[in-house]
């Protein structure tokens, strides 16, 4: 386990593409590193009721840590969502920063 404090980020899947997205503060973004970071889980949870349902599906809060300035998902599942699958170089790991949804 990391010594860094646990922080919180909101994630969901884009409604049209199903792509993994993170709440960036005023828009849904594709990169975990661009996510809006909450210090307290309650603050992140409180946001969940605010989203427009035709944009994303299934928003929820995940735990992250900032390790050497890099946001990292705590759970392996979220790490895979943020990066892409292990068996192919597909998903976020293979995409340019400016991919469209």
């Amino acid at each position: 386990m990391s010594a860094h404090p646990i922080q919180y980020v909101i994630t969901a899947n884009d409604f049209h593409s199903g792509a993994v997205v993170f709440w960036g503060g005023d828009a849904w973004l594709l990169r975990l590193r661009d996510a809006c970071v909450f210090e307290r889980a309650e603050d992140a949870e409180a946001m969940l009721t605010q989203f427009r349902p035709e944009q994303v599906v299934g928003a929820y809060v995940i735990e992250v840590v900032a390790d050497a300035g890099q946001l990292q998902a705590q759970h392996i599942r979220e790490a895979i969502r943020a990066r892409g699958p292990s068996n192919y170089f597909h998903g976020k790991q293979a995409e340019e920063d400016h991919v469209s949804l």
Partner: peptide, 25 residues
């Protein structure tokens, strides 16, 4: 897409047509 159906209403409909939402897509 037009917002007439909520996700809760839509989910069983898409599932009946074999459409799942997985981790990445």
């Amino acid at each position: 897409i037009a917002g007439v159906l909520t996700e809760d209403e839509f989910k069983p409909l898409r599932l009946q047509n074999g459409v799942y939402l997985q981790l990445h897509a």
